[in-house]
């Protein structure tokens, strides 16, 4: 009797909690979407990062995002408890230098095609008026380059400069050579023999 009573009480409690604390949407999709780089470039084959996040949650492979790169795959693997797999070449290669689209303004004919292609509304302009890219909003997704009928859009890769320079980790290889002179001698003589 007491057991039945307890079961009823906890059942009611759980039922109430399920309704009261109902989670909207799929939280794992949001977590995956958080890791994806939000370039909305579609290189993964999905129309944006959210759809790819949904696809990953549905079991798609995690190595289809070149802008996210190895670090992105690592983070996704950690989140989903999956194996780290190398980036799928089919979807493009990772380029660590961020890119920004640049419209050569004298050549622009004002067709608005790039504006329609831009997934983050980073291109400014109107029909028959010159267009320009708001550099700070551009994700470097490449999607505006193809529609341009006069090929006046360049993707400019950021070059290393005094502003964005930062210390690199010491080269781990340099720590392993010539630990003591005799080791170095052995290493070279070993190489000689191998050759």
């Amino acid at each position: 009797m007491a057991l039945v009573g307890l079961a009823a009480v906890f059942g009611a409690l759980l039922g109430f909690a399920a309704i009261r604390f109902k989670t909207e949407g799929n939280p794992i999709v949001d977590q995956i979407n958080e890791i994806l780089p939000q370039t909305q470039c579609g290189q993964c084959g999905y129309p944006g990062c959210k759809p790819y996040a949904e696809a990953i949650a549905g079991g798609d492979r995690i190595n289809k995002c070149p802008p996210g790169g190895e670090a992105g795959i690592q983070a996704l693997a950690d989140l989903l408890d999956l194996e780290v797999i190398p980036l799928d070449d089919e979807h493009g290669e990772e380029d660590p230098r961020p890119a920004v689209a640049f419209i050569r303004e004298d050549e622009c004919i004002g067709c608005t095609k790039c504006i329609q292609a831009c997934p983050v509304d980073a291109i400014l302009g109107a029909a028959k008026q010159m267009h320009t890219v708001i550099a700070s909003e551009c994700t470097g997704c490449d999607l505006c380059v193809e529609p341009c009928p006069v090929d006046c859009i360049d993707m400019i890769r950021e070059e290393e400069s005094l502003q964005n320079w930062h210390w690199a980790l010491p080269n781990p290889v340099s720590r392993q050579v010539e630990i003591i002179a005799t080791d170095a001698a052995q290493a070279t003589s070993g190489q000689d023999r191998a050759a």
Partner: peptide
């Protein structure tokens, strides 16, 4: 920060 910003813009556009 930038990706968060892009996400918001993308969603607003959609």
């Amino acid at each position: 920060e930038k990706s968060e910003h892009s996400r918001l813009r993308f969603e607003a556009r959609q």
